[in-house]
């Protein structure tokens, strides 16, 4: 491989990672602004025009704050898990279609499922390595919640790939030219959206954080730079999940696709809308109770998605419109 092609792919990588990190920075500002206006106050306004430079100030503040490693913590794991968390969150963006992608992986949905399962280890590792009760309890809660909802996420993905006939995000994108999967799998897509809320530990499922009883959950003992890495990874995962919902359910750039217009702006608008609904949900709903959360995952979503998978897989066979392979 020549130096030239390496430089080209480095530029391509930067063109993905820099916008991701920037949008993570601005979604934190957007969250504070949206929550502020929903509670009849203004949110950050002082740093820069309309408070636009607030996330940069926050980032600089976090990186010049003193990081603390508790004396009883397991040192290597404690230092490695924030790095691993952000690395996984960035690598997840490799197969994402806007509709152009960095790398066209044929089994891109399996790639995504695998990496998002790996993200559980960073939570568990950081909670265990902190050697603090709050962190351990928060980590156990977060892991149990994440893996419970991963089952219904997986079954939803199965419904979609049965209808699209492929694991490739590009072909899923293309098969929604005439009808979005949010219509085709209407009940499943509602469950998918709720599961993404739970999977990213967002409110109303933010029991891992639980300020009143666990202070901050698995990252209590982290401060400064390492905490910033966890923070970036968390918000990157939120945007990623919404991008995935856009591609899987909202058809990517679907209405513009028929006209042959550039679709990237439409994809971005849909991702922004879904992320805004995440913030809206946070402003509107109170937190779930833990047993209700588990009840929802195992007694409602799992049986429903098992049944709907059978039903949805049967329809194209019965009506003879199986996807081309």
């Amino acid at each position: 491989m020549s130096l030239f092609s390496i430089i080209i792919s480095l530029i391509h990588i930067l063109l993905i990672i820099v916008p991701v990190l920037l949008s993570v920075a601005f979604i934190t500002l957007g969250e504070r602004k949206a929550l502020g206006y929903m509670q009849a106050r203004k949110g950050p306004t002082l740093v820069g025009p309309y408070g636009l430079l607030q996330p940069i100030a926050d980032g600089v503040k976090l990186f010049i704050k003193e990081p603390i490693k508790p004396s009883s913590a397991a040192s290597w794991l404690f230092l490695a898990t924030p790095i691993l968390a952000l690395t996984i969150a960035l690598i997840l963006w490799v197969p994402m279609t806007f509709p152009h992608q960095f790398s066209s992986i044929n089994l891109s949905l399996i790639f995504i499922l695998t990496l998002s399962s790996l993200a559980v280890y960073t939570i568990l590792g950081s909670g265990w390595a902190s050697n603090s009760k709050y962190a351990l309890l928060g980590a156990i809660r977060a892991v149990a919640q994440t893996i419970s909802y991963e089952v219904s996420l997986g079954l939803t993905i199965l419904c979609i790939i049965v209808l699209a006939g492929n694991f490739n995000l590009t072909s899923i994108y293309e098969s929604q030219t005439y009808s979005w999967f949010i219509l085709t799998c209407a009940p499943v897509s509602i469950m998918w959206y709720i599961s993404t809320l739970a999977e990213t530990n967002r409110s109303p499922f933010d029991l891992a954080e639980g300020e009143s009883e666990l202070v901050s959950g698995f990252n209590v003992e982290y401060a400064g730079g390492p905490f910033a890495l966890f923070f970036l990874a968390e918000y990157s995962n939120i945007i990623f999940m919404n991008a995935l919902s856009t591609i899987l359910l909202l058809g990517g750039g679907s209405p513009l696709e028929i006209l042959g217009w550039p679709q990237t702006i439409l994809v971005a608008l849909k991702i922004t809308f879904l992320s805004f609904v995440f913030l809206w949900v946070r402003a509107s709903y109170p937190r779930y109770r833990y047993d209700q959360l588990m009840h929802l995952a195992w007694k409602t979503f799992l049986p429903l998605s098992l049944g709907l998978l059978t039903f949805i897989a049967a329809i194209p066979i019965a009506l003879d419109f199986l996807p081309p392979y």
């Binding site: 491989m1 092609s5 390496i6 792919s9 480095l10 391509h12 990588i13 990672i17 990186f63 230092l79 924030p82 790095i83 691993l84 952000l86 690395t87 960035l90 690598i91 490799v94 960095f102 790398s103 992986i105 730079g225 390492p226 910033a228 890495l229």
Partner: peptide, 18 residues
């Protein structure tokens, strides 16, 4: 190879940030 470069790049970026 671009995939490996992506993995290495993000890993190195995170290590540098840390």
């Amino acid at each position: 190879t671009p995939l490996i470069i992506f993995f290495l790049f993000s890993l190195i970026l995170c290590i540098i940030l840390s």
